[in-house]
């Protein structure tokens, strides 16, 4: 993919920070307002997909390589599992909210609810990286015509 016209690129440059802020807002205040890790992750994945469509696949992969996306995916899952296992160590049960038990926060404060914001961040990382990874792989796949059965590897090697 080559990227789009200058109009699309300019609009993308203007709105991208707002989309990122919205995704972060949804994630970080997920325990207080509607939203949460899933919504924030999907919005951030949509931001990366918008950048990929506007500036082209090579541009996006230079700034956010596929290996990094895979690592972030694993890191998200890992944080989630570590928090769950820490609950096993400190609270006696898997997935117990040990932070809330030891440091009870004020209700409706940003830093409250113990492990829930941590888990929200983990889920956000996981969902965003997974969906971006799927999109970047699907964008790289060529759809060939019927007669032309030879495969084109050029796009894969350019990375």
């Amino acid at each position: 993919m080559k990227g789009m016209t200058i109009i699309v690129q300019t609009i993308t440059r203007l709105v991208k920070i707002f989309i990122l802020l919205y995704g972060l807002y949804l994630t970080l205040t997920g325990h207080l307002t509607p939203g949460g890790g899933f919504a924030g992750g999907v919005v951030i994945a949509c931001l990366y997909i918008l950048l990929t469509l506007a500036y082209g696949r090579q541009w996006a992969l230079r700034r956010f390589p596929r290996r990094l996306a895979g690592s972030l995916d694993s890191v998200g899952g890992f944080i989630f599992l570590i928090v769950a296992c820490l609950g096993f160590g400190f609270g006696g049960m898997f997935f117990v909210n040990f932070l809330e038990r030891f440091f009870p926060g004020r209700p409706f404060a940003l830093l409250s609810a113990g492990t829930i914001p941590l888990n929200n961040i983990a889920i956000c990382l996981k969902v965003a990286a997974s969906l971006f990874l799927v999109f970047i792989v699907m964008a790289g796949a060529r759809l060939l015509e019927k007669k032309d059965r030879t495969y084109d590897y050029k796009q894969e090697e350019e990375e």
Partner: peptide, 22 residues
Amino acid sequence: RETGAANIVTAVILDYRGYDTL
């Protein structure tokens, strides 16, 4: 009271029913 999260849906998916999310 138990989880400290005002959003009950988030409290359910990330605290009470964490296995589901895992």
